[in-house]
Write a protein that binds this DNA or RNA. Structure first.
Length: 191
DNA sequence: TAGGCCATCTGGTCCT
DNA sequence: AGGACCAGATGGCCTA
């Protein structure tokens, strides 16, 4: 994986097409109350009025030949609101990714982990912590009474059920830590 | 320049 | 019915 260290991306405000008032691109004035500054930088010419929906191909975007003029105002307004909600949703998702990055120890503090790197490291970090806890507690959850081995058995069943292909040997913390360590180094090296 | 990553738009589907 | 969620499409930015 290549290393990346770029500032938060801000799209250049592209004004390829002057939105005609009234015809409206879907990109209206964005209040953007979120943490991110208002995307005045939205680049894309809004396709608000992508042709009438339907038409096969999974219903994905189909820039109709008609252009933005073809949609009713109420429909355009709904689309704008929907776009805004979707942006906010994605911002929340990205915030969650950022929060996750901040709790995963890794050796690339100077470079932002990509989303896939974040998820992969998090998964292995959790596994290594789980294995460590299991070992240190001999299969018992700290402070809990009861048959300890059940936790260990449950863990192994999970590994098998999820296709983790982690045998008992990998339930050892060393195995996970080794894997985790290898991974963060491979990310650092950009491999 | 190619490839990776990302933000955004958009329509379909699911859920409340 | 409306919002949340999902995934395809598109295009910008960055690095090798």
């Amino acid at each position: 994986m290549k290393t990346k260290n770029r500032p938060p991306r801000r799209r250049a405000p592209v004004q390829d097409t002057e939105p005609t008032p009234g015809e409206g691109t879907l990109d209206g004035p964005l209040p953007s109350p979120g943490p991110e500054p208002a995307k005045s930088l939205r680049s894309r010419p809004a396709r608000a009025a992508a042709g009438p929906r339907g038409g096969g191909d999974g219903g994905r975007r189909r820039p109709g030949p008609s252009g933005p003029g073809g949609r009713r105002d109420s429909s355009i307004q709904r689309r704008l609101e929907s776009n805004e909600r979707e942006r906010q949703r994605m911002h929340k998702l990205n915030n969650a990714f950022q929060a996750l990055r901040e709790v995963i120890p890794h050796v690339r503090a100077d470079k932002k982990l990509s989303k896939i790197e974040t998820l992969t490291l998090a998964k292995n970090y959790i596994k290594s912590l789980t294995a460590t806890i299991l070992t240190m507690s001999s299969g018992r959850l700290p402070g809990l009474e009861g048959p300890g081995p059940k936790l260990y058995q449950h863990y192994q069943q999970q590994q098998q059920a999820t296709g983790g292909a982690l045998g008992a040997i990998e339930a050892q913390p060393q195995g996970h830590l080794q894997r985790y360590s290898t991974q963060i180094h491979s990310f650092r090296e950009g491999t």
